[in-house]
Write a protein that binds this DNA or RNA. Structure first.
Length: 544
DNA sequence: TACACAAGCGCC
DNA sequence: AAAGGGCGCTTGTGTA
């Protein structure tokens, strides 16, 4: 059973039941309390789970969550539109409900910004989603999904939308006082506005002394020039470069940069902005990366420095169940390519250990070989290692080579579930036919080579997330909402569940089952295993 | 003053 | 000769 949801004034909305082919099953019904109406229908249909059809989970669902209402399934029109457009080679075209309807009706298509601003409404901060548009676009999308075979990807993407909104709502347990103590230990107490923390100022002064003139360590141009005046020529101020420099200022600058990075990106002002009531609430953007990986629109949840994991602490009596997929991408490649030799290694718990024998007993070389194959690397030992890979794992090698050739030819490549890379720009096409465009051509080859692996890994992770969410929801039934295990973090190949300690084992089991379900749904009958390294801990930093 | 871009580095 | 994919975030810098 599906129910389409339109917007209404204030807390209201409009509901209309639709069939599984998208055709309306009854009249549209305005409701004054949308959250209440959704909750009532969600729970009324015990045997027949509702799939809620709405324009954008990210805009609508937070409102329901704030009212204490969670739903099991949805169809997100915007996320689906983006996936369908991408599959049709129309990546980046407007995806809003209004745009989708305009395209369907052959009218001029508004860009997403215009559609979102729309004509003002009296009671809302944005245009209300028209229920007739929701129903019409949904029916059209169901046809396109069926034609393209994107059913699983679209379902998983919508489930991801629910997870993202829920994680943004629930938040990651974050201990501000631990974070503060860590910063203070590393760089001194929080400075007054406009000043550097003590340790950073000391380092800046020491760098100035060592170079014989005051420099702003944050200005690469000044730093390069200052090194020049003491007879040291550096090509940039990258840490790789500075590591090779003998001059005493180099070590000071490296220490400065490391601390400054933490201070500006994840220091006290970050905490002020993003941590409230003991929770870090990031804004995830589902499908925000072309490969289907998530992005964030604030808070940098996907780039939290490892040292700060110390501040992520479970509530008293609770645990963080932390699980990451070990060496996900090479396993994905093995499964994609159906490479039996690589799949054999991927049956082991440490894939690189298993491969070491092939590369002279050196685990690091095995890793470089795999990463070079997936990223298009060609520096250092890569060529020799790739030659070994080509001989020993010919199907895996050919899979990524083929993707690279397709990209260089300007073609599209797709993930396992059908997520499709963007088309090359016209500027690229113009350049590609010239000798001078060789580097751009190679660059696109590296992109599509990586895309097939990274995007298929994202497919798997998204399906895992959906499968895990379903299990956690089942676990939560009968519990008070505040006692239920919750997904609180997701980062490409890693999940964190915050759970009462008596649920920790059950959650760990559920994660393993979800990984297995994802393996089967995404890759079918593959011998490749996707082991999860799982730990139930009090502090995130203790998980590894 | 506002903005776009580059540099640099955090995460996968 | 060198040649690694994807992001977000902040500061510095150049340009309008």
């Amino acid at each position: 059973m599906r129910i389409a949801v339109g917007g209404g004034p204030g807390d209201g909305g409009v509901l209309r039941p639709v069939a599984d082919d998208g055709s309306p099953l009854g009249p549209a019904e305005p409701v004054a309390d949308l959250a209440g109406a959704v909750a009532a229908r969600e729970h009324a249909s015990a045997g027949d789970v509702v799939r809620w059809v709405w324009a954008a989970t990210g805009r609508l669902y937070p409102r329901l969550l704030r009212a204490g209402v969670r739903v099991g399934r949805c169809h997100d029109l915007e996320l689906t539109e983006a996936v369908l457009l991408g599959h049709a080679g129309r990546f980046g075209e407007p995806r809003s409900l209004r745009a989708a309807l305009a395209r369907l009706e052959g009218r001029p298509v508004p860009d997403d910004k215009a559609a979102r601003e729309g004509p003002p409404t009296l009671f809302d901060d944005g245009p209300a989603d028209d229920i007739d548009a929701v129903v019409a676009v949904h029916a059209d999308q169901l046809r396109r999904v069926s034609d393209t075979g994107l059913r699983l990807l679209v379902a998983a993407e919508s489930a991801g939308g629910l997870v993202a909104a829920e994680m943004g709502h629930d938040g990651l347990p974050w201990r501000g006082e631990v974070h503060d103590a860590l910063l203070t230990e590393l760089m001194g107490p929080r400075p007054a506005t406009g000043l550097r923390p003590r340790r950073l100022q000391e380092l800046a002064d020491a760098i100035g002394e060592a170079l014989g003139r005051r420099v702003n360590p944050d200005s690469p141009a000044q730093v390069v020039k200052a090194f020049g005046t003491v007879g040291v020529t550096i090509s940039s101020t990258r840490s790789r470069v500075l590591h090779e420099v003998e001059h005493p200022a180099a070590a000071l600058l490296l220490e400065y940069k490391e601390l400054a990075r933490l201070y500006v990106a994840h220091g006290w002002s970050w905490m002020d902005s993003w941590v409230r009531d003991g929770r870090f609430r990031p804004e995830y953007v589902v499908g925000g990366v072309v490969s289907g990986r998530w992005a964030t629109s604030g808070g940098g949840a996907l780039q939290i420095p490892k040292v700060l994991r110390r501040a992520v602490v479970a509530d008293p009596g609770w645990r963080l169940v932390v699980a990451d997929a070990a060496q996900l991408e090479p396993r994905v490649l093995a499964a994609l390519a159906g490479d039996r030799a690589l799949a054999l290694a991927a049956g082991e718990s440490d894939l690189y250990d298993a491969l070491a024998g092939v590369f002279g007993g050196d685990r690091d070389k095995a890793k470089i070989a795999m990463l070079s194959a997936m990223y298009g690397g060609s520096s250092g030992d890569a060529p020799q290692l790739l030659a070994i890979m080509r001989r020993r794992f010919p199907h895996a090698y050919e899979y990524v080579e083929s993707a690279a050739r397709a990209g260089e030819a300007g073609k599209l490549v797709r993930s396992r579930l059908g997520r499709t890379c963007p088309s090359p720009s016209q500027a690229w096409r113009d350049l590609a036919v010239q000798d001078a465009g060789r580097s751009a051509v190679r660059s696109r080859g590296r992109f599509t080579r990586n895309f097939v692996v990274q995007a298929s890994a994202a497919d798997w992770a998204l399906v895992l997330l959906a499968a895990l969410r379903r299990r956690l929801t089942a676990m939560a039934s009968g519990l008070a909402p505040e006692d239920a295990p919750r997904l609180v973090f997701f980062q490409h190949d890693e999940v964190v569940v915050h759970a009462p300690e008596e649920f920790a084992d059950t959650v760990a089991t559920a994660i393993g089952e979800a990984a297995e379900e994802a393996r089967h749904l995404v890759f079918g009958d593959t011998p490749v295993r996707f082991p999860m390294e799982t730990a139930a801990v009090t502090c995130y930093a203790d998980a590894k």
